[in-house]
């Protein structure tokens, strides 16, 4: 094997190694907590009292908050994302589609702290005013902003899925007297179901893992949320807000790593579902 090839092979394995290391370190740093406090109530309870005696660590409320915010983002984002992808793949001339695609690519880079800032200054007051809430810093506001942030992922992957549908299907549909919309809606979109599903899962993974935006506008309340319009603290915000204050190797510190491990496992599972669709398709 020439040395260049050996070098790039090494680089390839490095990617594998880094992914594995992330998992290994999370497990290692979680272990002291899991050994001492590991129980089901860690997932189901909603009391998080890191400095009481004895301390209590339960992440149920944070998990539910993550779920609510992700759900809001997906429910709002997916219809827009799929319709936008249909426009790009099927309705607009290629020259126009390229412009929109470029806009998505560029705005995909807007930092999440900037979205958080805007959410704080504009979205939260608007939500509070429109819905007559005591505070606009709610799970709903965070989900709303996240729905905008996941759109580039949703649109580009859904568009790819739509474009991958064989043209023969559309042709058969037209030959049966379908118009363009009927062909899109009854044949092309259903045929792209798998790819669009993968796009939704990847977007979901992104929403679950998003940190700064939710840290800044979800409201930060520790208790179990009872409505999507409650202030809440998703799991990413919990870690980001406390990790700097937790004494190293304290139980709180290890509990936060355990929360990180759970987060890693959840996003890993969600992404693996998406990846199995994508990688599986390429293999064919």
């Amino acid at each position: 094997m020439p040395y260049q090839q050996r070098l790039v092979t090494l680089a390839g394995y490095a990617v594998l190694l880094i992914t594995a290391l992330i998992f290994v370190f999370l497990v290692q740093q979680s272990w002291p907590f899991v050994r001492e406090h590991g129980s089901l109530v860690f997932f189901t309870g909603d009391r998080w009292l890191p400095v009481s005696l004895p301390p209590v660590f339960q992440i149920g409320g944070f998990l539910v908050s993550s779920g609510i915010i992700t759900g809001v983002a997906i429910i709002i984002g997916v219809p827009f994302g799929v319709l936008a992808a249909i426009s790009l793949a099927e309705l607009l001339p290629p020259g126009v589609s390229v412009i929109f695609r470029s806009i998505f690519e560029v705005t995909a880079g807007i930092p999440s702290v900037v979205f958080g800032f805007l959410g704080l200054k504009i979205v939260a007051p608007a939500v509070a005013g429109l819905l007559n809430l005591p505070t606009g810093l709610t799970g709903f506001s965070a989900g709303l902003v996240l729905s905008i942030m996941i759109l580039p992922t949703l649109v580009s992957l859904s568009e790819e899925a739509l474009r991958a549908v064989p043209r023969e299907y559309a042709e058969a549909s037209y030959a049966l007297g379908a118009n363009r919309w009927q062909t899109i809606w009854r044949v092309i979109v259903p045929s792209a179901r798998g790819g669009i599903g993968a796009a939704v899962f990847l977007a979901m993974g992104r929403a679950i893992g998003e940190t700064m935006t939710v840290l800044m506008i979800a409201g930060g309340r520790l208790a179990m949320p009872t409505s999507i319009f409650d202030p809440m603290r998703p799991i990413t915000a919990l870690i980001a807000s406390e990790v700097n204050n937790a004494a190293r190797n304290s139980m709180q510190y290890h509990a936060l790593f355990t929360a990180g491990l759970i987060l890693f496992i959840i996003t890993f599972a969600v992404n693996a579902i998406a990846a199995s669709v994508i990688v599986g398709k390429k293999a064919r």
Binding site: I22, G209, A240, F264, T267, F268, V270
Partner: peptide
């Protein structure tokens, strides 16, 4: 794919 999906925090 999964590394790309690991949350930044």
């Amino acid at each position: 794919v999964n590394l790309a999906g690991v949350p930044s925090v």
